[in-house]
Nucleic acid binder design. Structure first.
Lengths: 194, 194
DNA sequence: CATCATTTTTAACCCAGGTTAATGAACGCC
DNA sequence: GGCGTTCATTAACCTGGGTTAAAAATGATG
């Protein structure tokens, strides 16, 4: 992992983006690994009807690749856009691959990396398959409460696999359960961002 | 990939299982890679309330690992059970890891393998997040129609993220649409297995 | 601070799919 | 060939969440 950081530093290029800028878009041919330095991004699918489905949010330290795409013959299966001004490091996947081919340490760092990314996907798959939207929201509340203050309710809902109206109802349900029940203090305060 | 096959042959152990036998169960500490030689298996999560959610079906040629688990501190996050009598090759993940550490070719085969597995997860994630149960069923119908004749409607439904009753309704809906519409010949014939 | 744009919440209505329980097919076995 | 078992379908009822559109809250701006 040390070695991979080093490689990223030596061969990667730092990219600075503003809020709203895309890093890449669904359908493009980009195959790279990105390391988030600062800011906030969202990775999302766009359906044929133009609907948006959010795959994940990315925070500093996170890694995301456009190389495990499978839809449309190997082009990017999703888009990556900045929700805040963001700095990230990009390294083409070919570089990683080429270096892996004659550097054992790099290859093993890649293995570790891929396992790490796989575990994240596995977790997401589990949540989508096994949990209700309300349970997914509850988990997010515990694991990454920061997100609630930085993404819109619309994005939050699209990440949970529901619509903003649906999310509002869930919050209300949770609050009323919580107030006469055991938990939850204030009504998950409603406020806008930016 | 050649090298990995070879390693599997040399260091892997062949396992023969009967219908109903488990290869490993959720919560166990097993960390291995399995290669399916023949038969049919299902990988599934069991929720706290005891409900079953099917992660995937495995056919000959498929690979599945118990090493990218993330739930419960690294133990298996799901169970693997045979739906038919099955033959598979098991290789402990430590062996792969250990060999990767001093064999460049093996390490690169592992990278390729992990990317392949990641792509499958990515596809599943996409389907669960972006498609309706009916659309998921439609895709399965096209990509792996064989499954329809070899798994129960219950399992099929649990794979699609719905209940058997729900699946029946979807079939009926599709059939009636199809008959006065454009496609679908016979009512997706109803018959049992085994 | 009044207005405007944006985001969030609500409400009304609808539909997909859950739940439960009953009914129907197929199969295996005396 | 009758019987029990297992699996699949159906029906009745209910709930979560979609859809649309309106209302309320917030933030930005002159």
């Amino acid at each position: 992992m040390m070695k991979l950081d080093e490689l990223l530093k030596r061969r990667g290029k730092t990219i600075e983006k503003d809020k709203g800028d895309h890093v890449f878009m669904q359908g493009e041919a980009d195959k790279s690994l990105y390391h988030v330095g600062s800011g906030l991004l969202k990775a999302y699918y766009t359906s044929e009807e133009g609907k948006e489905f959010i795959k994940s949010f990315l925070l500093p330290g996170d890694l995301i690749g456009s190389m495990t795409s499978v839809v449309s013959e190997g082009n990017c299966s999703f888009s990556l856009v900045c929700l805040e001004s963001t700095s990230l490091v990009r390294i083409p996947f070919e570089v990683l691959q080429e270096r892996s081919r004659h550097d054992l340490e790099i290859a093993n760092a890649m293995i570790e990396l891929l396992i790490h990314l796989s575990m994240k996907k596995e977790k997401r798959e589990f949540e989508l398959l096994c949990l209700s939207a309300e349970e997914r929201f509850g988990r997010l509340l515990k694991s990454t409460p920061i997100l609630l203050e930085r993404v819109t309710q619309n994005d939050l809902a699209r990440y949970l696999g529901i619509t903003p109206a649906g999310l509002s109802r869930i919050k209300k349900r949770m609050y009323s359960k919580g107030s006469q029940g055991t938990l939850q203090a204030h009504p998950l305060k409603r406020s806008r961002l930016s």
